[in-house]
Each structure stands twice: as C-alpha cells, then as structure tokens.
C-alpha cells in the first residue's frame, strides 16, 4: 500500500509526521510488508521561508556556539600556548594531566560545594520568598521589585559592591559583628570563608530570578483545589505539601536545570571578589578554565577542562531529563 501526500505536516508524533498510516495486521497474516515510501519533496518556497526565518539563527548558533565548541574540542588535543602561531599535538595528554593533577580534587570539591549551595539554597530561598510575595499584603509590589532587582545587575558591579560589605576592617559585616562583640571572619584570607562569601553574594544576586519564576507558578495554582482541601480539614502545611508543591513540579524541574547550568558556569562574581583565591579556595572548574587559558596561557589544557565541564553539564542535564522528568506531574 502506498500513500503519498504533498501536504507538509509539521506537528504530531513521528508516525504522523511522515503522513502515512500502517495497515491493520492480524496474527494470521503475519507481519505486514513494509510499505514502499517515496520521499515527498519539500516545495522550494517552504525551504526559502525556512531559510529566511531560521537561517540567521542557525548561522549565529553555528558560528558562536557549535564552531567554538568543536574548536575547543580540537584544541584540547594540542599543547598550545595561547598567542602562539604553532602548537603540538598531544592526544589526550591534557585530559590525563587534569585527572592526575593534585589540585583537581580540590577544584572538584569547590565546584560541587558552590553548585549545591547555590542551586539548592537558591531554590529553597526563592520558593520561600515567592510564597511570601504571593500573599496579598501591603507593599508586596515594592518587595517584588526589591527581590528581583539584583538579578538584573551586573555580576561585576555586585561583586565590587559586596567587597566593601565584607571588608573585615571597614565593612558592614564587621561593623555589625563588632556591635555584638564579635570579630569579623577572615573572608578574604580563609579559603572556606571566602567560598561562603561568594556563595552568599551569588545567592543574593540570583535568588530573585528563582522567586520570580516560582511566583508566576504559584499564581497559576488553582485556588479551588486549595480551598477544597481546606474545607476537608487540611492544614496550610498539608495543602502546600500535597497540592501546591506537586503542582510546582514542572517549575521546579525547569529551575533545577537552568540554575544548575548557570551556577556551574558562574564567573563574574568570583573574578570580581576573590579571583579564585585565596589558595584556590574559590576556584571552580569554570574559573580554572579562565586561569589556565588566559593567566597561564595553556590554551590546550584549558580547552580540555572546558570539554570535561561540558561533558559534565551534558550528563547532568540528560540525567535530569531521564530520571527527574518522570517524577514530575504535568
């Protein structure tokens, strides 16, 4: 049986997309013979339209995303001093060097702590803020603006501003702690405190985004469900846990992916505040890519770290899509 259509179909499942329908089969007849397909030709006007609309975007993606990505992959197999016109092929040596470097475990640990704290902390604080902002109280509008405002500020500006806040001699934190008879932590000279400091600043800057998205999701939660639960005697906490939170599932899933990707790629606040120090205490994988590539000039090694980070991001995103997506109720 042959069925050919000239009408382009642009939506639907894979079968619908081809525009043909399989014949019904019976066990007695055995498997049906595979129908002979003739590829339908896309009219040139459709191609032109596609090129007109999608072409510029595709070109930009190829030039600024995929080409650099592939170039980075290629450079990771080279021993190349950035700025030099010549480089040496070294195969996977850069990868072997990274995995055996004594600083690598520390960099992985810093990256993990920073990511978990900023993603986890951001989601929890963002949700709590959204719950507060979702209430009909006076001044909520102004509070929403205040919460979201830091998100639109430049990371460098935020970092420089907080440098003054955390200054152990002249900063606001030091002054506040002095009021209660405490000394300021050594934010800039102690690796653990320095990491805590950049996490706090990162959260301050980005939590408004999470709150904003959660707020939009909260406002789309059907009120009748919550009211029905209330009539049935459910407490506010129970309603939140059993109704609101599951309904926020898709939003939580979306935020988990986007904030994770943003956190793993964060650079500006670290550069403005600690430059990866002290003692590498705030050097994440992302920051190491910059350090190795532009401070040490080891472009090949830096590209290898970038490729590893890319692989990690890809794996984590796939894992989220595969395992977490199934638990989300749409």
């Amino acid at each position: 049986m042959e069925q050919v259509t000239d009408t382009p179909v642009v939506s639907g499942g894979p079968r619908e997309r081809t525009g043909h329908r399989s014949p019904p089969s019976t066990p007695a007849a055995g498997p049906a013979p595979r129908p002979v397909q003739r590829r339908r030709r896309t009219p040139w006007k459709a191609w032109l339209l596609f090129l007109l609309f999608a072409g510029p975007n595709v070109a930009l993606l190829v030039i600024f995303t995929y080409k650099p990505l592939l170039q980075s992959l290629y450079y990771s197999t080279l021993q190349w001093n950035i700025g030099s016109a010549v480089a040496m092929p070294v195969g996977f040596q850069n990868y072997a060097d990274w995995f055996t470097d004594p600083t690598t475990p520390r960099i992985i640990a810093v990256t993990l702590v920073f990511t978990l704290a900023t993603v986890g902390g951001g989601m929890v604080i963002g949700l709590l803020l959204a719950l507060v902002l979702n209430r009909r109280l006076r001044g909520t509008g102004a509070a929403r603006t205040v919460v979201v405002a830091p998100y639109v500020l430049s990371g460098v500006a935020v970092g420089l501003l907080w440098l003054f806040v955390f200054d152990p001699n002249f900063g606001v934190t030091a002054a506040l702690l002095r009021l209660v008879g405490l000394a300021s932590p050594d934010w800039y000279n102690d690796p653990q405190w320095a990491l805590a400091m950049v996490i706090v600043v990162y959260l301050w800057k980005n939590v408004g985004y999470v709150a904003l998205i959660y707020l939009a999701a909260l406002q789309s939660v059907p009120r009748d469900l919550v009211e029905a639960a209330s009539i049935d005697g459910a407490t506010s906490l129970r309603s939140f846990r059993s109704i609101v939170l599951p309904l926020l599932g898709p939003t939580t899933f979306f935020l988990a992916i986007t904030t994770l990707l943003t956190s793993l790629q964060s650079f500006d606040i670290i550069q403005a505040m600690t430059k990866g120090g002290p003692l590498g205490g705030t050097t994440t994988m992302m920051y190491q890519i910059y350090q190795e590539g532009f401070q040490s000039g080891r472009a090949g090694y830096s590209s290898a770290v970038a490729t590893i980070l890319f692989a990690v991001l890809l794996l984590v995103t796939f894992a989220q899509l595969k395992y977490v997506d199934r638990k989300v109720h749409y």
């Binding site: 080409k67 290629y74 001093n81 016109a85 480089a87 040496m88």
Partner: peptide, 20 residues
Amino acid sequence: GAAALAACSGPSVSSDVSGG
C-alpha cells in the same frame, strides 16, 4: 564539516614548535 572547519582555524600544528 563543522569539525573540519574547527580544525582549519587556530594555530598550525607541528611536533616541532621550536624557534617560535
């Protein structure tokens, strides 16, 4: 093609990079 394009740019590659 994209991989070839990527390889086309960047430094020239040689096992001897002395005299840079």
